[in-house]
Computed example of a mutant assay.
Amino acid sequence: MKLLSTSLLVLSLSLGTFGARVLERSKFSAKDKCPSAKEVASKTYTVNGHEIVHQTFACPDGSLRESSPPAGNGKTIRSTSLEKRNAAECRTPAPECQCGTAFDCECQDVTANAPSSGDCTILQDSLSVVSQTEGSTFIVQPDSFELVSFQTCAFEWTSFSNSALEYCWDEFANTGGLVNQICFEQKGGTAAACNSNNGLWLSQALRVGA
């Protein structure tokens, strides 16, 4: 899972995520936006000795679609910075398939500390192994979100659609790696939120745990 060259790291970014564990500060993750969220599935993968947790949550009160991400701090990046944008991996056609959909991201300052960039790198790299088990894509139902985490770092993908959406693991991982580089390694923010231009989904990265 390659990231783009550093010469491309001057673009736009907006990403935010929730942790299955407790956030240092709330009002950012899908869990915080939907206190009634219920875990409907959970799997743990051991990748090179690291335990990667994949959880699926459903929001029964529909509050996710009524929420909006916090304002960014000006550090931004666009989806054109990603090398791999391949909808051919999908099992379904658009609009269910969202691989390659344009998005804009921003770094956010929502927790006292950013996740460990090393944890985020391990999480990004591990998603290639998760995809070998789960398949190249994942399906997210309406009013639901996916969360993958490793120690202090979590990536989250939230659906705002009235129907099921499909997204690619490699693109999810690459986006998480990109915001890790710009927001966390380069001290651009403590979290990140990437909004799709079509308004159907939000991809986030943030700190979980202590």
Rank of each mutant, 00 (worst) to 15 (best):
A88N: 15
A112T: 10
I77M: 09
D119C: 12
F145P: 04
V148P: 07
Q108M: 02
T92R: 15
R91G: 13
S126N: 04
G118V: 11
I52V: 15
E106V: 04
I52G: 07
E146H: 14
T101S: 13
Q124Y: 04
S126K: 05
S117R: 04
L127C: 10
F138N: 12
P60L: 01
V129Q: 08
A58Y: 02
F145V: 11
C97Y: 07
F150D: 03
T158V: 15
T80I: 09
Q55H: 13
G100D: 05
Q141F: 04
P142A: 10
I77H: 06
R85E: 01
T133W: 03
L82R: 03
E134C: 06
G62Y: 00
R85I: 01
K84F: 02
C120A: 13
V110T: 14
F138C: 12
D125F: 04
S144N: 11
T158Q: 06
S68K: 11
I122S: 09
W157V: 14
S149M: 05
H50V: 15
P95H: 12
S136I: 08
S117A: 14
E96T: 15
G72H: 01
Q108L: 10
C59D: 01
E96W: 09
V53Q: 12
Q141H: 14
A114F: 04
C153R: 01
D109P: 03
V47I: 15
E96C: 07
P69T: 05
C90P: 11
K75C: 00
L127A: 10
G100S: 08
K75E: 00
E83A: 10
S63D: 00
C105P: 02
Q151N: 14
V53D: 06
C107I: 05
I139C: 13
D104I: 04
T111P: 00
S149P: 13
S128Q: 13
P115M: 06
S117E: 07
H50K: 15
R65N: 08
P70C: 03
L64E: 05
D125T: 15
A102F: 03
S68H: 05
A87P: 14
T137R: 09
S144Q: 10
V53N: 13
T137C: 10
D61E: 06
F57K: 11
A88D: 11
P95V: 12
E83D: 12
A87Y: 05
N48T: 14
P93T: 10
V53F: 06
F103E: 02
L127M: 15
S67N: 09
Q108S: 07
P93L: 08
Q98Y: 02
D125W: 05
E66A: 13
T111F: 00
V53R: 14
A88R: 15
N48C: 06
V148F: 10
P115K: 03
S116H: 06
V129L: 02
D104W: 01
S159L: 01
A94V: 12
S68T: 12
E96K: 15
